Computed example of a mutant assay.
Amino acid sequence: MERARRLDSALIERIRHDDEADTLAIRFRNRREYLYEQVPRAIYDALAKAPSAGSFFNERIKGHFPCHRLGKRYAP
């Protein structure tokens, strides 16, 4: 099941979690989107409810899960 939510955050525009794949897509206000892997649904739920999504992201997600940028191809 996939869940999505817009956030009232200066840093993050939208988050989307895929329960089956355990992935979290985060679209930032600068329009860049990243896919974080091996992210449990509890992290998505906590991010959605966090008083500061930006602080939660920096403390609990950034650097803690493998990720790659979506919508941009990199040369091998």
Rank of each mutant, 00 (worst) to 15 (best):
E2D: 06
E2L: 14
E2G: 00
R3S: 08
A4V: 09
A4K: 14
A4D: 11
R6S: 12
R6G: 01
L7R: 07
L7M: 05
D8I: 04
S9P: 04
E13Y: 12
R14F: 10
R14C: 08
I15G: 02
I15D: 07
R16L: 15
R16D: 08
D18P: 03
D18H: 14
D19W: 06
E20N: 14
E20F: 08
A21I: 05
A21E: 15
D22G: 03
A25F: 07
A25G: 05
F28R: 01
F28W: 07
F28V: 03
F28Y: 11
R32H: 13
Y34D: 00
L35W: 06
E37T: 07
Q38F: 08
V39Y: 08
V39I: 10
V39F: 07
V39R: 01
V39H: 02
P40M: 12
P40N: 13
R41H: 13
R41P: 00
A42V: 02
I43R: 12
I43S: 06
Y44W: 11
D45G: 02
A46M: 10
L47V: 03
A48L: 09
K49V: 00
K49C: 06
K49M: 08
K49L: 03
P51Q: 11
P51L: 05
P51V: 10
S52D: 15
S52K: 04
A53Y: 07
A53K: 06
F56L: 01
F57W: 12
N58Q: 09
E59K: 08
E59A: 11
R60F: 12
R60A: 01
R60H: 15
K62T: 00
K62H: 12
G63S: 03
G63E: 03
G63M: 05
H64W: 04
P66K: 12
P66C: 02
C67T: 06
C67L: 02
H68I: 01
R69D: 00
G71K: 10
G71C: 04
G71Q: 04
G71W: 09
K72F: 05
K72S: 04
Y74T: 03
Y74Q: 07
A75W: 06
P76S: 11
